[in-house]
């Protein structure tokens, strides 16, 4: 029943905890303290995006809602404010340091209040009064929230949280394989075996006892290379590695082999930490295309399971070539004995 316990947690703070992996407690408490502030900041980011978009898409409607006349001048002003909102929203959501972008919101709030104040003095009819004063009250409230969060973020918790949040993405995956820990360890410890189930890894070459050279297929046909070194090697228990200085994508990882209860084989826990190109946004986009490392780790573990349990990875007719193609026999002549090594993509 545990055959497919897959835990998926990337990004911020809490993760599915893998056994025997200890994280600094100090860092954890700081993270916990920073989390609500960050979540609020994120909320503000989305709010900015939504408001900015609606100001650009439906300026007249919005003008009516807040009780401002919809003449060309106020419409132009509305669009300008919309662009500013979009900028601060994107900044908050995508940048690692959020504080400056929230301060930008505070500045924006002050401008908005000034604009609304002028609308009050310029009004001729009393019809839009309710909406206008409603809008002012709302902006005052939001300003207070912005100010509060900007101050908290600037007080330094922001940076710690940001470092762990987005520069390093963490992917934890686990699968239960019906094979002894010794066997799984032995297979994994020979790093040159890794390309057999890691879809994106083209090759791993051992340079010496501890160092290896990795070649990986990146997005858009890019070839990414780095050298890695072995950090931990506990026989039949755990292996960890990290990339050396000058790697294209700074990354590290660990794998643990835990004997599964009830004679079910081995739980294989994998944790991968990496610099996501483009930060969180980049990771989110990669996820849409199924190219995000935690998704790839998931699929890789499944292939490892097949390889160790059956000795081969089954191919369907639609998985022989790269990309989407119909489920029908291939025109290419296929050599079954080379299939496992070659046509994995």
């Amino acid at each position: 029943m545990l055959q497919h316990t897959i835990s998926t947690t990337t990004t911020t703070g809490v993760r599915a905890t893998s056994p025997r992996l200890h994280r600094g407690e100090r860092e954890a408490t700081i993270l916990q303290r920073a989390r609500p502030t960050n979540r609020l900041a994120q909320g503000l980011g989305w709010f900015s995006l939504a408001l900015g978009l609606s100001q650009l898409v439906a300026p007249r409607g919005l003008a009516r809602i807040i009780g401002v006349r919809d003449n060309p001048r106020s419409i132009a002003g509305m669009a300008a404010v919309g662009i500013r909102e979009l900028a601060s929203g994107l900044g908050i959501l995508t940048r690692t340091r959020r504080a400056p972008w929230v301060w930008m919101r505070v500045g924006g709030d002050v401008i908005d209040l000034a604009l609304l104040g002028r609308a009050v003095t310029e009004r001729r009819r009393r019809r839009g009064d309710m909406q206008l004063f409603g809008a002012i009250t709302a902006v005052v409230g939001v300003t207070a929230l912005d100010l509060f969060i900007a101050q908290r973020l600037s007080r330094g918790t922001d940076d710690v949280a940001a470092r762990t949040r987005s520069q390093k993405q963490v992917a934890t995956k686990v699968i239960t394989i019906n094979a002894a820990p010794e066997e799984v360890y032995r297979f994994w410890r020979d790093f040159e075996n890794l390309p057999r189930f890691m879809k994106n890894v083209a090759s791993v070459t051992m340079l010496d006892d501890r160092r290896s050279r990795w070649v990986v297929h990146g997005p858009a046909g890019l070839r990414i290379e780095w050298d890695a070194e072995l950090v931990t090697d506990r026989v039949n228990e755990a292996i960890s590695w990290r990339s050396l200085e000058g790697a294209d994508v700074d990354n590290s990882g660990s794998v643990q082999f835990v004997r599964a209860p009830g004679g079910r084989g081995t739980e294989v826990w994998v944790e991968i930490r990496y610099d996501a190109p483009g930060g969180r946004m980049g990771a989110a986009i990669a996820k849409l295309f199924g190219k995000e490392p935690s998704q790839q780790a998931h699929a890789d573990l499944r292939r490892l399971k097949q390889l160790l349990e059956v000795g081969e990875i089954v191919h369907s007719d639609s998985s022989i070539h790269h990309g989407l193609h119909p489920a029908r026999p291939s025109r290419m002549r296929i050599n079954p004995s080379r299939m496992q090594k070659e046509v994995l993509r």
Partner: peptide, 10 residues
């Protein structure tokens, strides 16, 4: 369409 061929061992 092309005839199918053996791809995997089993």
């Amino acid at each position: 369409v092309p005839d199918p061929q053996i791809i995997d061992q089993h």
